[in-house]
Design a protein around this nucleic acid. Sequence first.
DNA 1: CCGCTAGAAACATGGGGCAG
DNA 2: CTGCCCCATGTTTCTAGCGG
Length: 214
Amino acid sequence: MFTDEEIIHRILDGEDYLYEALIRKYNQRLYRISRSIVHDEDEVEDIMQTAYLNAYLNLAGFKGKSTFATWLTKILINESLLHKKRQSKRSQVSLEKLDSNYNYETPLSSLMNSELKAVLEESIAKLPEKYRLVFVMRELEDMSTNETMDALDLTESNVKVRLNRAKEMLRDVLSGHYKSSDVYDFHLSRCDKIVNRVMAEISSAIDIRDHKRD
DNA sequence: CCGCTAGAAACATGGGGCAG
DNA sequence: CTGCCCCATGTTTCTAGCGG
């Protein structure tokens, strides 16, 4: 097993195909996080694709100031927010779109009552974006407070209080306890789809780059 | 025992709405 | 317009628990 940093070194040394391993590793995380900003699945796919591509093209600029995971997450969040901003400019109607998009599939079998899961997903989706983002990153993706604050450019205390308030809001809706591990699951076919697309984009990007070099 | 982290509570601030 | 209140948000501070 190689660390991300080792893989990146090898990619920069010419082993471009290794980028696929990184994509597969972080697909689930990026999907959930982007999905907590943008509701439409297809749009999330596009955003992830763009984020992976941007990350790849700027890989040489990654200096290891934070971890690769955080760096990549940051790129994704920026891309997601950018997309959302563009979209809200085009059409002001976003509210009615919210409800129709909650019913996406969560393929893995779970111990959780499906009705409860649906309620939980809906409740999460209804959280204000800042709370939802922190909640998804901390609770669903198991990111540390430090990772989360780096990715979102927040203070430590702010991450803590947002997480607690998110939970508080969810508690108001959900009586009793909840199990969050299988919310926002990432469908495997979707994973392959994105991997293939990004690797295709990368190979053409490499062609262009090599062309320019000549 | 020490250091780190999470969480809860108290406190501070800033904006929006509203009566006068 | 002004003063006031309420609400959302962020910071500070304290406590508890966990592992080295």
